[in-house]
Amino acid sequence: MERRQPAGDDESATSEPSRQVGPVTVRGDQVPRTTTDQRLLDAPPPGELADWLHADPWRVLRIQSEFVEGFGTLAELGPAVSVFGSARTKPDHPTYELGVRVGRALVEAGYAVITGGGPGAMEAANKGAWEAGGTSVGLGIELPFESGLNPYVDLGVNFRYFFARKTMFVKYAQGFIVLPGGFGTLDELFEALTLVQTRKVTSFPIVLMGTDYWGGLFDWLRSTALSNGTVNAADLDLLRLTDDVDEAVRHVTQGATDIEPHPAE
């Protein structure tokens, strides 16, 4: 099969600063100094409370539009798995190649691949899906240090608000495969774990790829969280830790285990 030309792979592309603001691309002096999430969550400056209160209800319409856009775009996606990992992963790092293999294996198993659409490990999973001829999805977010979706995304939606974007990761995926990553990856991981543990979602397997990277987290959960009674033994079984791509894909595509998580106390 002849490989497609990735989007944005153009030597004449502009080098100006750029940012994706929801569905809008801005460059140069049009790039805003703040993000939509920041303006939503920051306290209003002194003396501007009244204006902020009056403006806030209008934000509800924008938030609503993000959910409508996401639902409308992804409703017919079909079986899919969300893959997370660090945006800082370099193309020559072993984790990048691991992400490519994961993306390719998921497509070969009949699944679309959903990522955050950024660089690093996300790009790697999208690249693997793209090279395998599958559906490569990117759910981008407005950030001051990222300029849009990676070139291996076939189907992309850009969000202003993290909470709207995070809903799409869970709603349209049958499970998560988590590559080594930082705060953002941990946020997605533990939000998914909380949803499964509290039975807000069911049949949602979660796999961590990389025993050297994630092993310390597993050890801490067993030796500290479990021993202090803040989690139950069954809760730890909600996670599968492996270095084997085939095992990861098999686990996440076969659905959740029979273990019933205990509700949070």
Rank of each mutant, 00 (worst) to 15 (best):
A75V: 13
E76D: 15
L77R: 10
L77M: 05
A80R: 06
A80C: 03
V81E: 01
V81K: 07
S82Y: 04
S82R: 06
S86P: 03
R88C: 04
R88P: 03
T89Y: 09
K90E: 14
K90V: 10
E97Y: 02
G99F: 00
G99C: 01
R101M: 10
V102N: 08
R104T: 10
L106S: 10
E108C: 13
Y111D: 07
V113N: 05
G116T: 08
G116I: 00
G118R: 00
G118A: 15
P119W: 07
P119F: 07
A121C: 01
A121L: 06
M122I: 09
A124P: 01
A124M: 06
A124R: 07
A125Y: 04
K127C: 02
K127L: 11
A129I: 03
A132I: 12
A132Y: 12
G133V: 14
G133N: 11
T135Y: 02
T135H: 04
V137R: 00
L139Q: 09
I141S: 09
E142L: 11
P144A: 13
F145T: 15
E146I: 01
S147E: 15
S147C: 14
G148S: 09
L149H: 08
L149P: 03
N150V: 10
P151S: 14
P151I: 09
V153I: 12
L155P: 05
L155G: 08
G156A: 09
G156T: 12
N158S: 15
R160C: 13
R160P: 06
F163N: 04
A164F: 09
R165Q: 08
R165S: 04
F169L: 00
V170K: 05
V170W: 04
K171C: 09
